[in-house]
Design a binder for these strands. Structure first.
Lengths: 112, 112
DNA sequence: AATTTTCATAATCATCTGGTTATGAATTGG
DNA sequence: CCAATTCATAACCAGATGATTATGAAAATT
């Protein structure tokens, strides 16, 4: 239910994407991966401020949302930010953001 | 709690922003406002697929997140998409999106 | 072989959240 | 003045969600 016929959504998984981004801890983990590159669960747990199982679950959601990749080697799982994962959000921003704010020029300098 | 010392957040309300965007119905309502311009609750309810009280609550969240404005005239409340509301998300995308996808030219490729 | 490390999953729990119906306050209209 | 319209809020409910501790499997180390 909750059909909203006029919805201009970008696929069903764009919902899981927005949901994945809605949690601060999850965003922080993703940001960390972007900045520091591939990390295993121990490293992520050390920095996340929540328990290891919680980190695993958060990473699971990020993975299902397409925002990270998981590479298992031996007993470790290495997570990395997934390049194209934000695509649908970018698209959404393009459609519903650029329409009204043209300040969409992403700036070449990330950290400055 | 849940302190994550490395978090590069853009203000506390950026959290309410992402949360506001995490719900599909809310996104749909926002999209509708962007496309159709200022609307009152009756119009929004007609199109939202949920009850009027629910629409009111959704609009409340969007308002608190800075994504819409509310203008009351008589017994009607007119909601409109708020231009600058997506700013923090755009910034976040710029920092954590542009870093890895060298630059997101949004409209170019809608399919992939 | 025994132990430690790494990770995911299960069992629980409290809280948040989306949804509903009911109600009531204003405003508008007959 | 009474009725209808518009909206927000309250009361309530079911399910999702973030968090914890406990556990167990698999790999690495001793």
């Amino acid at each position: 239910m909750t059909e909203v016929k006029f919805r201009g959504d970008l696929g069903a998984n764009s919902d899981s994407l927005f949901k994945a981004l809605s949690d601060g801890t999850r965003r922080a983990l993703l940001e960390y991966l972007v900045r520091e590159g591939e990390q295993n669960v121990v490293a992520l747990t050390a920095v996340a401020g929540v328990s290891q199982p919680m980190v695993s679950r958060h990473m699971g959601k990020l993975k299902r949302a397409g925002l990270v990749t998981a590479r298992r080697t031996g007993r470790e799982t290495w997570y990395a930010a997934r390049t194209k994962g934000l695509g649908p959000v970018v698209q959404w921003m393009a459609i519903y953001g650029a329409l009204w704010s043209q300040r969409f020029t992403p700036m070449e300098h990330a950290g400055d």
